[in-house]
Design a protein around this nucleic acid. Structure first.
Lengths: 296, 296
DNA sequence: ATAATAGTGTCTTTCAGACAGTATAGT
DNA sequence: ACTATACTGTCTGAAAGACACTATTAT
């Protein structure tokens, strides 16, 4: 490419860049918000039943205004000398102390009033962590990071047919809980189809204890996770090196919030796993074969 | 919520916000980049054949450094008083002069050196427009906007098995062309699976006439479009009010870059369309029934 | 024996793919 | 009659869903 080309002011690219002034336009701040999911065992309820699994999300208690005392997603500013992904990895490392874990960009949230301090645009990332690779680290961190059990359920659906399409309104209840706190929010998702143009809007109806618009960001992340677990192998990021097929099925079940039939589940995931010769021991019942992930 | 809570400095939220100083940290600029797709008829090649369809993308010729003379996606800065979506709609309106069209956020691109002037983070949006609702407007615009025929093909695939997974490298050739210009780029997509952690990276190998990292953004958009057309009804955003099933099939075929079997295609889309009583006229062959979109 | 979980076989229905056939306009 | 497109019927095989059955450990 000819880099001696001159612009209307008669400047070459080199000269142009040397004199370039980024200008006095005011700029938004840019942050990343991390959705860090893991799956852990619930305490066994009866003497020799299998432990139930729960989906957990890492949240941080705010120590200052705004939303002081409420819980927010971990995250922080994107520095001038790092890419978005690098910023996200840095935050992840700070919170979980793990380096090489699954991470994916989800969506960028840029409504004007979403932070009362100043204009902040925030990109959300989702990360999936095997709970066994986590040390307690994130639990006794100075900045009050804690894992919350996540539940997100559709509880109302309303369809209105209009002359040129329809309006579908769905209400989701998001509940985050642990031993000490229960946070909740209601998120309204409105899908409008009019003259074959589809539009989807997401709105927080009510939010208890969840800072900023993070309830919306969490709901969106869960939706994406549910969707993606169906047609990719991301679920294995939540599994330890060796696992039983029942454990794997439990992970699918808590994420999708449905019960699956064992035989069918095994058929479906059969070529994503490799059989090993090892078995579980000293459960109060028949031992089960351990499998590992098969990266085809 | 109790908004009389005080922080460590003894300030209420109101007092805190009044004295809040956004700080002297340098901030990136934030822009939106629009992928505006449409489908148009190619000139008929023989006297009574059906016109072939082509997928087109709107690009703008750069009049200043950097990348002077090259072609870039339409887009612009996000103002402080508008949301990301509003900025995207504004750009869309400026370029196409249409208001109510399909638009979807795709991805946020934030590599450090992606713009030589200053740090710019850019969110890409995809929009689908029915070409009949477009006037020539965008063609004779002052800022040299033009539609390019798009083609994006996989031309090399290479898989290397590693001890703990594999590396899959794919090369795509992107070609944008119209009567006057041919632009092209090669994009490398590397998928690494290692210890059950998957990572995907996208890199521009070579780019001819396409400004910035826009080749990458376009390739990603096409991938998403191809993916989404399979399981949603977005294709209808590219169709006029009334259309024949063959026209609809052609749209699927150019986007997916494959040939589909008529009978199977019709079965698949049957409940997304409504039959009308109208027929096409004066084609050199049997008239065909017109359908409209069925917003279920 | 019984509780609890592990693991398999198979029937049915649904859906995607392939292909062959019939129908109807213009020239 | 012929060309070009419109439209339909049906066979096949793969996958999803439902369900029933057998197996193996600990108490």
């Amino acid at each position: 490419m000819d880099n001696k080309l001159k612009n209307k002011q008669g400047l070459t690219e080199e000269e142009f860049l040397k004199t370039y002034d980024a200008g006095e336009y005011e700029r938004p701040s840019v942050t990343v918000d991390m959705l860090i999911f893991t799956v852990t065992d619930q305490e066994k309820e009866s003497y020799r039943k299998l432990p139930e699994k729960v989906l957990r999300l890492l949240m941080i208690k705010r120590g200052d205004h705004p939303y002081i005392g409420q819980w927010a997603l971990p995250g922080g500013f994107v520095n001038m000398d790092e890419s978005m992904d690098e910023a996200a990895r840095r935050e992840l490392k700070e919170e979980t102390n793990i380096d090489n874990i699954y991470m994916e960009q989800l969506y960028t949230w840029g409504d004007v009033g979403r932070d009362p301090r100043t204009r902040i645009i925030s990109t959300s990332y989702m990360s999936l962590v095997d709970s066994h690779s986590l040390d307690v680290k994130a639990n006794d961190d100075a900045d009050d990071a804690k894992w919350f059990t996540v539940s997100c359920k559709l509880f109302q659906e309303q369809k209105t047919v209009t002359p040129a399409g329809y309006i579908l309104q769905r209400l989701f209840k998001l509940i985050l809980s642990n031993e000490d706190d229960i946070l909740s929010a209601t998120i309204k998702i409105v899908k409008t189809v009019e003259n074959r143009v589809t539009k989807i809007e997401r709105e927080i109806v009510e939010s208890e204890g969840i800072a900023f618009d993070h309830a919306k960001i969490i709901e969106y992340g869960i939706e994406r996770l549910r969707n993606k677990i169906e047609y990719t192998d991301i679920a294995f990021n939540l599994m330890p090196e060796l696992f039983t097929l029942t454990q794997l099925q439990q992970v699918y079940e808590i994420i999708l919030d449905t019960e699956l039939l064992k035989a069918n589940f095994r058929r479906k995931i059969s070529d994503m796993v490799i059989e090993t010769n090892e078995y579980t021991k000293d459960a109060g019942h028949r031992p089960s074969k351990l499998f590992r992930f098969n990266p085809n």
